[in-house]
Structure formats: structure tokens, C-alpha cells
Design a protein around this nucleic acid. Sequence first.
DNA 1: CCGCGGGCCTGAGAGC
DNA 2: TGCTCTCAGGCCCGCG
Length: 295
Amino acid sequence: MPELPEVETVRRGLEPVMTGARIQRLECRRPDLRFPLPERFAERLEGRRIERLTRRAKYILMDIEGGEILSIHLGMTGRFTIVPARAGGAQRPGDFHHEAGGDPAHDHVVFHLAGGATVTYNDARRFGYMTLIAADEMATHAHLKDLGVEPLGNEFSAGYLAAMAMGRRTDLKAFLMDQRIVAGLGNIYVCEALHRAGLSPRRVASTLAGRKGQTTPGAEALAPAIRGVLDEAIAAGGSTLRDYRHTDGALGYFQHTFAVYDREGEACRRAGCAGTIRRIVQAGRSTFFCPACQK
DNA sequence: CCGCGGGCCTGAGAGC
DNA sequence: TGCTCTCAGGCCCGCG
């Protein structure tokens, strides 16, 4: 469901409950999500502490005591719900799964933490997946090795975009959706960032690169537009679309400020622009943009 | 190497 | 109300 801001919001919701906590029991209510769950999954996690929660692209990464990393991708509809420990202390031996988010049929994995809190992974479409990665495999693991830079990190800049765009004949929309270029963008925030930068999603990517891959006004506009859209979305707790929820069940608010996404036929929100938002299909996905101010 | 279409699953919403 | 159709935030694979 989520793009970078939603994944980051979920990570921040999990952090205070899971960091430092010991996994007492792992309840797997089916053997697979998108892929089979890891071999001996429960065995490898039970009794171990979660040392750290981080994020890379759209993956939540949990450092597990003993040197493995639990990597979780939420796919389209993955979400976590936290049920805090009951006042009065630890769970009783008889406690089993209890409905966490109101959709028990799709509660697939439940982390029972020492102390009594539970963290439940729910995923209706099961496009999400969980993987256990050895610490020394992090640089080479198939899911992670080709990812591009983090758009909120120090390596991301107009110069980086221009250099990567050099010689690329693909359109700008697909260029930004490519996780090997910028890690964590998806359909919504690409549409929003391109609008903010005043760039058409149909423009050829290589037009962002100057001679020898030097930066251009387009790249100079796009880099801060991407950062700004993501920063603001994270500050708003992500966007709520369909079934996206925070770990406490709350909704995000960023969708109320979409400039173009899902606004076909509505007026462009750029000051002084009289355009109307259009929807087109690129590589099978909806693109929303303003033909009047995105060139 | 590149872009595109299809597939994975299920649910929500629109239209009849 | 209920059926059918279309579409959905991601990503992988195979084809031309």
C-alpha cells in the first residue's frame, strides 16, 4: 500500500514498542505471504531481542539479536496494528491471537512480545513479504543490492538525478518509479513531485541531464520537489488511501493536500495556473498531471 | 539493455 | 440489494 512516507510512518509507530523488546512467540497463521515465510521462521525469532528498526526504500528492517535482519515489505495492503500490554502485566499462557485491527481473516503474522504487547501484520492482498537476511548478506541480497539512493539522504541531489538521467530515453515518470534510481518513490509521490517541479511525466528523462551529465534547471527543480513532497507527507503521517492505517489505527492526512493525484478533471492548484488535471496511463499505471504547467 | 503487458491476490466502489 | 466490472499505493517475469 505504501510508498516511502507511509513505510516511514509505520516504522516510527513500531519503533517505541519493538525496539529493545524480546519476541516471546511468533504466531504464523499461514505459511506464506507473497512468498513462503522463511524456513523455521518462528524458531529463528523466538526468544530474541529486536535491537533496531530502520528503513531502506520501502522495506522495514529489524536487526535481530544474533545477527539476522528481518526485512518486511508491505506490498500494497500490508499494515501493522499494535495492541499494548494489558495493565497488570504479562500475558497469560492461554492468550492466543486476538483480533487486532478488525479484519482477523487477514491477520497473518503476530509478534507476541515479552511484556504482553502484540504486533499484528495484516495483509489482504498478500503482496507483502518477510525475509530473514544474514547481516553479511545485506550488501548482496537480491531485494536490496540494486536499490538507488535514499531521496531524503545526503547522496540525493540535482547532480545525482542529472547524472543518472544521462542517456536515458525512458519517460520521466518511469525513471522516477525505478527503484534503482531513487529508492522509495511510488505512483503517488512521483506524480506529486513532478507537478511541484513543473515537469511533464512524459518528458524524456535524459533532458534532465546537461552536457557530460551536468545538472539542469529541471533537475534543480526536481530534487527539492521530491524531498519536499516526501518530508511533508511524513510530517502529515502519510496518505490515507483505501486501507492504509497507522499502527494505532489512525489515518494519515497528506491526501488532503494532493496537488494532482486522483484529481482528474479538477482545477490545478498551482497559483496562477488555470489548467485542469488530466489522467493518462503510462506503463499500465495512472499518471495525473497538469498539461498547462508541467512541461 | 529497454519498455510493455500480464500476473500475483483480494476488496472497494461504480454502474446497471 | 446484488451482480459484474474496473481499478488499486508494488514488484517480478517473460516477451519482442
